[in-house]
Computed example of a mutant assay.
Amino acid sequence: MRGPRPARSAREWLGLAIVAAGAVVVVAHFWRFVTADPVVWNAFLGGSVAAFATALGTTPVIFSQRLPDRVQDTLFGFGAGVMLAACAFSLIIPGLAAAKSIGVFGGGDWAAGGVIGGAILLGGIALMVMDRVLPHEHFIKGREGQAARQIRRTWLFVFAIALHNVPEGLAIGVGYAANNGLRADALATGIAIQDVPEGLVVAVALLAAGYSRTFAVLIGMASGLVEPLGAVLGAAVVGHSAMLLPWGLGFAAGAMLFVISHEIIPESHRKGHEAFATGGLMVGFVLMMLLDTALG
């Protein structure tokens, strides 16, 4: 039986105070940076909406409710369709136009296509490398056999969800740097829609692995916090140099395409509801296409 936990020493309290003070300074500098540029601020708001949608998706777990698997898979398919259309109409096509107008490598059709194609491949490769490097197994120490495998699989899925929120955030930021407000809002809204079931899936997966309801909900909410950070990064980097715009658009599209193919579509087909997932994908694609072309 464990004895009482020893009180913290003065040195430990001093260290905590220094860390807290440093965090306050970093947050203050970040806030000034975000509010100083209207484009970055709008990107931050768009990313925050997506993060809120992820948090919103965890709420059924608080009340012991759960969306039917068929509904979840349909929403995943819908989100995949929205993201596919966003890749085409909000990222790739504007990227090609930007490459031509800026005159990258001469500004011809082949040059523009080569730049965007290369950026798409770079985005996909970057996400593939991150997907292989980032997940770790230190969460399963002390567990063996089937329990260890279940926890490992659960945490790998949680990491995958959080990981693919990075390019979604970047895409939102690049969208605000490259497009008018209405089109960028449509892109952010589409990404937020498919974030709702993701938050739910993360919380449910952790709950099924034996974690408490509170822990599952908090981690599900936290998985979306990278989106406003990614949005700020995307808007700031692309807004700094017009030459980076086509590369940023193509890179974000490639990262999103990797996520759609590697995570969202397989997950939506895993439970035998392929027809509903495919129907959701087609509806999502058409809806996002209409929004993009009508607002463009």
Rank of each mutant, 00 (worst) to 15 (best):
137 E>Q: 12
165 N>M: 05
131 D>P: 06
143 R>F: 14
44 F>Y: 14
250 G>W: 13
180 N>V: 11
198 E>V: 03
140 I>G: 02
114 G>Q: 09
67 L>G: 00
160 A>Q: 08
110 W>A: 15
267 E>S: 11
277 A>E: 05
141 K>N: 10
68 P>S: 14
235 A>V: 05
34 V>H: 04
102 I>N: 11
99 A>F: 05
209 A>C: 03
206 L>I: 09
97 A>N: 13
136 H>C: 00
250 G>S: 08
91 L>D: 04
51 A>M: 15
222 A>R: 00
62 I>V: 15
208 A>T: 04
52 F>T: 14
31 W>E: 11
118 G>T: 04
53 A>F: 11
25 V>L: 15
293 T>L: 15
123 G>E: 06
120 I>G: 00
202 V>D: 03
257 L>V: 08
17 A>F: 10
7 A>E: 14
12 E>H: 07
39 V>A: 09
133 V>H: 08
212 S>A: 11
11 R>E: 13
54 T>I: 10
65 Q>S: 13
106 G>E: 08
2 R>H: 13
141 K>Q: 12
47 G>I: 08
122 L>G: 02
43 A>P: 08
259 V>S: 15
116 I>S: 01
103 G>A: 03
160 A>T: 10
37 D>N: 14
9 S>W: 06
168 E>D: 09
275 A>D: 10
134 L>M: 14
76 F>A: 10
255 A>R: 01
105 F>W: 13
183 R>W: 10
236 A>C: 00
170 L>G: 01
80 A>I: 02
67 L>R: 14
107 G>W: 05
117 G>P: 11
122 L>I: 12
262 H>T: 11
150 Q>G: 12
209 A>W: 03
217 V>I: 12
140 I>N: 06
29 H>Q: 13
57 G>F: 08
54 T>S: 13
261 S>F: 14
228 P>Q: 07
209 A>S: 12
222 A>H: 00
219 I>D: 05
146 Q>I: 09
181 G>E: 08
4 P>D: 11
6 P>A: 00
179 N>L: 15
66 R>N: 11
81 G>D: 03
295 L>E: 00
22 G>P: 10
1 M>H: 11
222 A>C: 06
258 F>V: 00
284 G>M: 11
260 I>F: 03
244 L>I: 03
32 R>P: 07
117 G>D: 04
13 W>D: 12
31 W>N: 12
108 G>H: 02
75 L>Q: 12
116 I>R: 03
235 A>K: 09
60 P>N: 08
149 R>S: 06
251 F>W: 05
73 D>T: 07
288 M>F: 10
179 N>W: 02
227 E>D: 08
44 F>K: 02
79 G>S: 09
216 A>G: 10
32 R>Q: 15
144 E>C: 00
205 A>R: 07
120 I>D: 00
251 F>P: 05
75 L>H: 05
288 M>Y: 08
180 N>Q: 13
229 L>Y: 05
174 V>T: 03
226 V>T: 12
160 A>D: 05
215 F>V: 09
155 W>I: 14
264 I>A: 04
106 G>Q: 07
289 M>K: 01
134 L>K: 03
3 G>Q: 11
203 A>Q: 03
66 R>M: 06
210 G>Q: 09
268 S>Q: 02
